[in-house]
Each structure stands twice: as structure tokens, then as C-alpha cells.
Nucleic acid binder design. Structure first.
Lengths: 238, 238
DNA sequence: ACCTGAACACCGTTCAAGT
DNA sequence: ACCTGAACACCGTTCAAGT
């Protein structure tokens, strides 16, 4: 009685690369890295595992696309009107925040080759490089400077992902209490052998008031200071 | 006739954690990351897959132990009699060379949590930290400095592993011609859209005379310069 | 105490067959 | 052109049963 022709069912939208990647991101966010399975993905998309292969060559490409979907938006911002240092800081923080929100990104990101097009890393590299040029770094040193910044960002990304995973393993998966995790690490560090781990014990206390994000920018500033060291405009915070 | 009691067969040495880890390293070195399988490992040790579990809790622990076996020896050196900068450089290069010789280390290393004991990363952190203290970095900044250096090292490790893998994928697995790979990347970079990838195209030429190892130390020196910036003894190369 | 190896519960990927 | 889902060739891990 209601309607002559029933509307097309919601779940019968045609499959597409975008829908698949979106579902993959959702799966990764909710179930974690181990949860991304062609079978689970197929079920979520109300189809069979084989269907996905028509739109995507395999799991590697799917993962790369998922990472790209999460990282690319953070690179949309505009750099004009700020100092190069500020631009690099906000660029780096954008990547940091994206990884913080999607911890699974950090795990894989660091080991994607910096190949053209495919990898979002090349876009980050390019953006950093332009600011390095704006810093008037001599041409021969530009590659080194941009690479160092990118490597640092990737290193922190990996460590951060490892920490989130460890935090989730220690407590129940629902409770990602970062502070409690840091406390546990600090306590463990303080119990290390004083002869073998003098320094680690010394800095264990600093873990308590530790802010991952602030620490991350501090590292960026350290590298920026190194890049501009010995120059008239060498101050990092202008 | 030869001997009354036959000597125990070579392959019947009892299983032990060390033998298992050694076999795992060998497998990883020869067949790569995907080659480390409990079945393949069991075959190499002339036993069943289940036997391994009596000595090792699972694959994660096995991988961590394999990494430890490769990294730990590089930390054996003595730091006395050199400047802190030199000590940090040689420490970092030790890790770099170990990863270069065993590319599979780079993939996993970056995502091991810096937990006590388990991870070789904590030992590296400790060693770096001591030299940071020797650099007379103010106490409040020591953690940041040591963390930045470690993150950078881990980031390069991951990138390096990714590059070796990409190089092996492009050419036949036997031929890990790094130079040819860099050439291919340089060419690809030069073909990028000039509007979108201005910087990357600019530095593509530098890839040709690029030396991974030298580039790595240059980055370390950049961070060291940042750490000591603005101080009387601020020069990195004394 | 230590080893064996079949069995369990999964994977990614392929591919004939359908529409 | 696009989808289906059974089938293939694997995994890590467990565990009864052996010595």
C-alpha cells in the first residue's frame, strides 16, 4: 500500500573504492590493526571477500589507502602568513594528532616506502621541504634537513603507536588511560638496576608530568634549532 | 667397528632458547620477515612446531629476542675517552649498521614499546641519555634530548627497512642494488607534477650522490647542534 | 621435563560461476 | 562490468599423547 516501487535498499549501494576504504578505516579504528580482515570487511559491506579484490589489488594497497585517507586531510591547510618554523610545527602536529586519533597509522606509516604518489609521506616531505627552503637553508643541506624532520616525525609515530598498544594490553582494552600507563612505566623504570640504568632512573620522574604532544614539538624545535644554528636568524621562536 | 658408542647426532642437540633464537635470526636474514614461520623454524631445528612453545611464549617474544640478539652486541663498546658527541655518533651508527645488515630489524624495532628489560631500545635510550648528561644539558631538558635522538634513530630505521624492501621488490630479490634503486626513485621524483612537488623535484638530483649512512649521521649532528645551540661549547665537531 | 605432530581456528587470495 | 562464495594454501597456537 505504502509505495508502489520500494526504494533501493541502503546496503545495496554499489561497492566502490571509497566505501571500501571508509569501512576499512572504521574497522581499524574500532577493532584495531588485527581487526582488518577481508572477511570482516566483506561482512560489513554485505558482500563476499572476493568482491573487494575487484576494487583493490590487495591488503597492502588497502592499508596504504586507509592511511592516506587519514593523513591527507591534515595537509589541506594553508602555510602563508606564518613563519617557516610555525608552519613546520603545525604541519608536524597535524600528523601527530592524526596518528594519535588513529593509532594504527603509526604502526604502518613508518615502513611505507617514500615512493611517489602512493605514499602520503611524500606529500609531508614536500611540505616540510618548502618550509626548509623558506628558512633559507643552503641548497646542499635542504635534503638532509627535510629528511631529518620527517624521520623524527615517523619515529615518534611508531613509538606512540607502540605505547598505545602497550597501554591497551596492560589495562582492559576499553580503558586507554595514558596517565596510568605512564605511571606504570615510571614505576618500572625506578626499579631498574641503578648501575645499569642510571640515566633512565634519573628521568623516570619526568614521565609523570609528561605530555606526549608537548614533548613531540620540543623535539621538532630541537631539530629546527640545529638547522638554523649559527645563523643570524637562528632563534627557533622568533 | 669404528666406535662402540656412536656419538650423539649433531641435530639431536637439545633444543634451547639460544638455538631457537639463532635459527630465527638465520631464517630472517636469509628468507626475510615473511619467512619466519613456526613450521619453517621447526623444520630447521628438526622438530615439530609445538616444541618451540616450550622455550618461547609466542611469536612476539621470539621476534623481540631475535632483535635483541642483533642489537645487544652493538652496545658492548666503551664510551670513555671520547667526546659525548662522538660517543652518540658511534652509538647511533652501531644501531644503523646492525639494521643495515639485518633489514628486518628496522621494521619491528620502531614499534616495540620502550618497556624495561624486554626491549633493547631501553638500553639504547640509557646510553644516549648518559652522553646527554655528559653534554651538560640542563636536567629538565635531558629527557627531551634523549627521546628526540632515539626517535630519530628509530624513524630512520623504519625508512631504511622500507627502502630495502622496496629495492628488493623492484629488482630481483638477489640483487639489492641500492644505487639502482635510488636512481629509479630520483627519476620518478623528477617526473612529478612541478606545481605539487616543487621541492621534491629540486632535491631529486641529490639522491644520486646520496649516502644513507652519511645522511644519517648528518641528521644526528643536526639534533646535537640543536641540543647544544646557544652554548659556549655549542660546536658539534670540536 | 621435554618433545611430537595432528588438530583448531583462523588468514589473504584466487577463480569458476553467476548476474 | 561487477559480484558471489567455495576452495586453496597457508598461518599461529594448543594439546593430548608420548618419552
Amino acid at each position: 500500500m505504502a509505495s508502489r516501487k520500494s526504494r533501493p535498499e541502503r546496503r545495496q549501494e554499489p561497492l566502490s573504492r571509497e566505501r571500501i576504504v571508509a569501512a576499512a578505516v572504521e574497522l581499524l579504528d574500532t577493532v584495531g590493526e588485527g581487526g582488518l580482515t577481508f572477511r570482516a570487511l566483506a561482512e560489513r559491506l554485505a558482500t563476499g571477500p572476493g568482491a573487494i579484490y575487484w576494487h583493490v589489488t590487495g591488503k597492502n594497497e588497502l592499508l596504504a589507502a586507509a592511511i592516506d585517507a587519514v593523513i591527507a586531510p591534515t595537509l589541506a591547510g594553508d602555510d602563508t602568513g606564518t613563519t617557516p618554523q610555525e608552519a613546520i610545527r603545525s604541519l608536524a602536529l597535524g600528523v601527530f594528532d592524526a596518528i594519535d586519533a588513529h593509532p594504527w597509522v603509526g604502526t604502518t606509516l613508518a615502513q611505507l616506502p617514500r615512493t611517489p604518489g602512493k605514499s602520503p609521506m611524500l606529500r609531508v616531505f614536500e611540505r616540510i621541504g618548502r618550509q626548509v627552503q623558506a628558512l633559507r637553508v643552503p641548497e646542499a643541506a635542504q635534503f638532509t634537513a627535510a629528511s631529518a624532520l620527517l624521520s623524527y616525525i615517523l619515529g615518534v609515530a611508531g613509538q606512540n603507536a607502540a605505547n598505545t598498544r602497550a597501554a591497551q594490553a596492560n589495562t582492559d582494552p576499553a580503558n586507554t588511560d595514558r596517565a596510568a600507563f605512564l605511571d606504570a612505566v615510571a614505576t618500572a623504570w625506578r626499579e631498574l638496576d641503578p648501575d645499569q640504568y642510571r640515566f633512565t632512573r634519573d628521568v623516570a620522574g619526568q614521565l609523570r608530568e609528561h605530555d606526549d604532544r608537548a614533548e613531540f614539538v620540543a623535539g621538532i624545535d630541537l631539530i629546527l634549532a640545529g638547522i638554523t644554528a649559527g645563523r643570524a636568524d637562528g632563534r627557533t621562536r622568533p
